[in-house]
């Protein structure tokens, strides 16, 4: 495989609140391969948005390295640095908050185009802006350009956010919960449009979501990374990970999700957690942070040492899992409710 377009290496990030330090990301290692469909999933607060911001250079890590096209972004200067910042774009999770209500759609799109000198003059900007709206299927283009955000539906606004991210001709887009705020009935259309952008523009999309069914759909030909309390606990090919989840947290999540099929969802087996309380980031349990809730934890091991991501020896897939009993090849029998 060719060199990944981006790489996170040993990324830590903490925030300070008064005297307490909140460790939000710990030891995140992640390759983003060119043109792959990659999803980051996990419940709220697990660090998805923070990871996205770090990828896009909007937030510096407390420790660790970010590589873009093989180069440490810290070493990038001048034009190279500007190119990195333009090449990796984050789409904000909230299309309502991220669009300035006093600007027309044309204003929003033309500003970065002119500012980065990607086009010359209003006329060229208008032409390019119109092309971008076509790309995100926001038509009739000429109507839309002169509208204000409040005149658009939620789905249309999200398309504007995506068009705006495209102004700088990025090679990587981090789409943070980009369809979560719109109605279920139009989510797939947005997702399909983003998937088409990959083919049309050669842009690699990292899709962040808490919805595993959407993650599955988006990254069926790609990979999923599952995060829990600031760490990556399982990462690998979607088809293997969904069909055969290995990490206890992934298994619990998949077993808990209601499905849009009455018979299936009512006969689904739910794995019972040992505790429903989610630990605070400021009081993370020692060892594997899932251990106080994990039905399969091994005393003296899991509560002692932090498990590292690795492909379990007995596994016939390449999915990496950070869990001791799984790595030792133990069969985790199902605890049913």
């Amino acid at each position: 495989m060719s060199e990944p377009i981006m790489r996170l290496e040993g990324i830590y990030r903490s925030f300070r609140s008064g005297r307490t330090v909140i460790p939000v990301l710990q030891d995140i290692n992640l390759d983003i391969n060119k043109l792959e469909f990659l999803c980051l999933v996990g419940e709220s607060g697990c660090g998805k948005t923070t990871t996205g911001k770090i990828l896009a250079g909007l937030l510096p890590p407390s420790d660790g390295k970010i590589y873009f096209e093989g180069r440490d972004v810290n070493d990038l200067r001048g034009n190279d640095r500007r190119r990195y910042r333009r090449s990796v774009q984050l789409i904000h999770q909230d299309p309502y908050a991220s669009l300035n209500p006093t600007q027309t759609i044309f204003d929003m799109l033309s500003f970065p185009l002119l500012h980065h000198k990607l086009v010359k003059g209003q006329k060229a900007a208008r032409k390019r802006a119109a092309e971008l709206l076509e790309l995100v299927d926001l038509t009739p283009v000429e109507d839309i350009l002169d509208k204000y955000p409040h005149e658009l539906s939620g789905g249309q606004r999200q398309r504007v956010s995506i068009a705006r991210a495209l102004t700088t001709d990025p090679s990587v887009i981090v789409a943070d919960e980009s369809v979560s705020m719109v109605d279920v009935s139009i989510r797939i259309g947005l997702l399909q449009m983003m998937m088409n952008l990959r083919d049309e523009l050669g842009v690699t999309i990292v899709f962040i979501t808490h919805d595993l069914a959407l993650a599955k759909y988006f990254s069926w030909e790609g990979r999923i990374g599952v995060m829990y309390l600031g760490r990556m606990v399982e990462v690998g090919k979607t088809q293997q990970l969904i069909a055969n989840p290995q990490h206890p947290y992934t298994r619990v999540l998949l077993s808990a999700i209601p499905e849009p099929d009455p018979e299936k969802t009512r006969t689904k087996r739910h794995i019972q957690l040992r505790s429903e309380d989610i630990p605070r980031l400021t009081e993370l349990p020692p060892g594997c942070s899932f251990h106080p809730r994990c039905p399969w934890y091994i005393e003296g091991v899991c509560d002692h040492t932090v498990p590292q991501l690795a492909v379990p020896a007995t596994s016939n897939s390449q999915v990496e899992v950070a869990c001791f009993p799984v790595q030792e090849g133990q069969a985790l029998e199902l605890y049913e409710s």
């Binding site: 539906s153 789905g155 279920v184 009935s185 139009i186 989510r187 797939i188 259309g189 947005l190 399909q192 595993l212 069914a213 959407l214 599955k216 759909y217 069926w220 088809q239 969904i242 998949l254 999700i257 499905e259 849009p260 099929d261 299936k264």
Partner: peptide, 23 residues
């Protein structure tokens, strides 16, 4: 039917999903 076909299913390999057009 449109609502039902707009959600992907976890256990389907390939979903025949599509959004409902318009608003």
């Amino acid at each position: 039917h449109g609502l039902l076909t707009s959600v992907p299913k976890l256990d389907h390999e390939q979903d025949f999903v599509s959004s409902i057009a318009g608003a």
